[in-house]
Amino acid sequence: MSPQSAYRYMEPSALARVKNLQLVARGVVEGFVSGLHASPYKGFSIEFAEHREYVPGDDPRHLDYRMFARSERLYIKQYEEETNMRVQILLDISGSMNYRHEAKITKLEYGCYLTAILAYLMTRQQDSVGLTAFDDEIRLDMPARSSPRHFNEMMRQLESLQPGKTTGLASVLHKLANRFKKRCLIVLISDLYDDVDKVIRALHHFRHRKHEVILFHIFDKAELDFPFDDLVLFHDLETDEKIQVDPLYVREEYQKLLSEFVAEYRRACLESAIDYVMTDTSVPYDFMLSRYLTKRNQL
C-alpha cells in the first residue's frame, strides 16, 4: 500500500519515518489471519515454542531427537501460530483537545495525525484498525478492518472530524470496554481531562478484558510550561467559564497540580501494564511515534 499524500493527515515525511517500524502486540491477540502477532492457540507452525513429552498418538515427525540424545526421553516440539492484530484507536475530540497556544496545530489535529499514521502502520502490517471518536458521547465509530478501502474511509472521516464540547472520557471508555469482545490493542489518544479515578477504572476495565492499551497523553506546550506573564482572563474551551489569573503567582501551583495529575496517570498505567506516552504538540508526532515504537520493539 502506498502513502496517500492526498489526505490531510498523511504526511509523506512522517510515513517515511515509520515505514520500517512495526507495532507488535505485546500480549497474545486473537486474529483470523495468520500474521505478526502471537496467537493464543499453539499449533504447528514455523516458530518453535516449547517441548512436550511424547505421548502415544503424537506425530513422530516432530520428535526432538537432540533432546532424546541428551535425556534419553522422548519429547515433541510445539510451534506458535502467528495471527493478525485488531487495533482500535480511541480519539478524544472534546473541546479541550481543540486548544492551541503558539503551536502550529491543535491537540486534536495532532491526535488526528497520530491516528492516521497508526492506521497506516496497522494496515500495512495487514492488521485491522478501527477508529472511535468521542467527546461526552461516541461521535464516530469505525470497526477494525484491514482493507485499503476501510483505511481510505477512515482518513476521510478524520478530515471531517470537528471538536466537540465537554469531556465524558470515563463513561465512554467504560462503554467501549464492554463492546470489544475479542482481545485487541486499544490506542487511546486524549488529554485525559476528566475525573482521574474514573478514567483509571475505565482503563482497568480494558485490561480486565485482556485488551492491551497504549495511552497517548497529549498536551499543548503552553499547558505544561504556562508561559504567561501578564494578567490574563482565561476562558474554558469546554465550559466557557472565565477566570482572571496573575500567572506569576499561580504558575508554580498550577504546574504542581499538573505534575500530580500526570503522575497519577503514569502510576496507574504502570500498575496496569498500560503503555503511557506523554507528549506535547511541539514534538513532531512521527518522531515521537518512531521513538516509542523502536523502544517498544526492543523490549
Partner: peptide, 22 residues
C-alpha cells in the same frame, strides 16, 4: 485590573485551584 488580556485555555480545573490557593 481592567487591562487583563483574554485568552482561551483547555481547562480551568487546575487554574481555579491555583488561584484559590494563592
Amino acid at each position: 485590573r481592567q487591562r487583563a488580556k483574554q485568552l482561551p485555555f483547555s481547562t480551568l480545573r487546575f487554574l481555579k485551584i491555583s488561584v484559590q490557593k494563592t
